[in-house]
Design a protein around this nucleic acid. Structure first.
Lengths: 197, 197
DNA sequence: CCTACATTGTGATCGGTGCATACATTGGGG
DNA sequence: CCCCAATGTATGCACCGATCACAATGTAGG
């Protein structure tokens, strides 16, 4: 009937790509393995060969999210000044920008319900990226622009503020007028929060 | 067969109570209208008389969450000193405490997908509570312990940090050792962020 | 009192979903 | 070259949310 070959070629990648698309367009609740299979043109049971469960698919999706986020933050540091304020500013805008552009995905990435093993892989990738922030703080300390103290303890409040702001923006809690100065104020506040003295 | 009366008496309340229980114990994904009806001892279609859709039930649940959160924060201000630092400290711990104790509910409260009309009611209740934070900041300004400026613009970074820390804690991103000083550091950082000059 | 009516709960049904199992096809390594 | 592991198929199960017509109940007006 169909000229489609029996083997798809790269079903896992097709699943992830398609899933990311519908996730972006219609949210996680509208994501269905069956529909995915239908759209790709494969039997309803085929996806289970590559993702043991729907949650496994979501976990994999979250993983790609962390990777892309890490890339976005790394890219934000290209061609920006060495001053801590500039670097933090760039990273913050990269993070919030990613969050706004991938709202549903971000939800998934920081969702509570990951399978234990997936949490492990997620944790590793998440570290690969949070290390960027730690390094940024560390540089700031070396330049004498950031207060002394354990890296993680200085970075946590900064990261929490970023993460919270992203979450608030995405969930539409912030009134539109807040968007104007919101991020500027946040970055300024974070800078004061970890300034030396 | 059953001696249960035809009319339940207060099905909406029973639904909300039961839903909150399973939400807490097994997460939002395990919440099913049919199971709710089954457990309460009512027909599968009965809930639809009171909640037009599952999302409507979730919206109502989120609303009760905002109310309880407002109460928790208000209660935290009882019998605490007048110093801004003390008041903010109490409110912050109340917020994070609520978040940890009601992780899934908090997710729901700040979820993206609320029906437009529900968003309206949610927004109103959310304001009733964010006003508490604004008032707290305002008092701090009057006491000369908080920098000058528009209330909302000063409060936003503080609230973002709180919200982000709560989210990180709940989603298990924070390593256990971070929980020890994490909140203390966060509050201290927020205080520096909005301190006068 | 009693009757019309609105409210609330029932039962059945429909399309959809995730998952498991048994089977078919394929392609690459012994 | 052939066998086997990997991949996709077909089918079935249990469950879900939503909707409909219908039954039971409370209530307000005569």
């Amino acid at each position: 009937m169909t000229d489609r070959p029996y083997h798809h070629g790269d079903l896992p990648a097709a699943l992830l790509a398609r899933a990311e698309k519908t996730l972006r367009e219609r949210g996680v609740s509208a994501l269905s393995l069956r529909e995915l299979a239908r759209v790709i043109g494969v039997s309803p049971a085929a996806p289970s060969r590559h993702f043991k469960s729907k949650q496994a698919l979501l976990d994999a999706l979250a993983l790609t999210g962390f990777e892309r986020l890490a890339e976005a933050i790394a890219a934000s540091q290209e061609g920006v000044g060495e001053a801590f304020a500039d670097r933090l500013d760039a990273a913050a805008r990269a993070y919030v920008g990613f969050a706004v552009a991938n709202a549903a995905l971000l939800d998934l990435m920081f969702s509570v319900k990951h399978s234990p093993q997936a949490s492990e892989a997620l944790g590793a990738t998440a570290h690969r990226w949070s290390d960027q922030l730690l390094e940024l703080i560390g540089d700031g300390q070396l330049r004498g622009e950031v207060r002394e103290g354990p890296l993680e303890r200085i970075a946590l409040p900064v990261f929490a503020a970023l993460h919270g702001y992203a979450g608030l923006t995405v969930s539409g809690v912030l009134p539109p007028e807040a968007a104007e100065h919101g991020l500027d104020d946040l970055i300024a506040s974070a800078l004061r929060g970890c300034a030396t003295q």
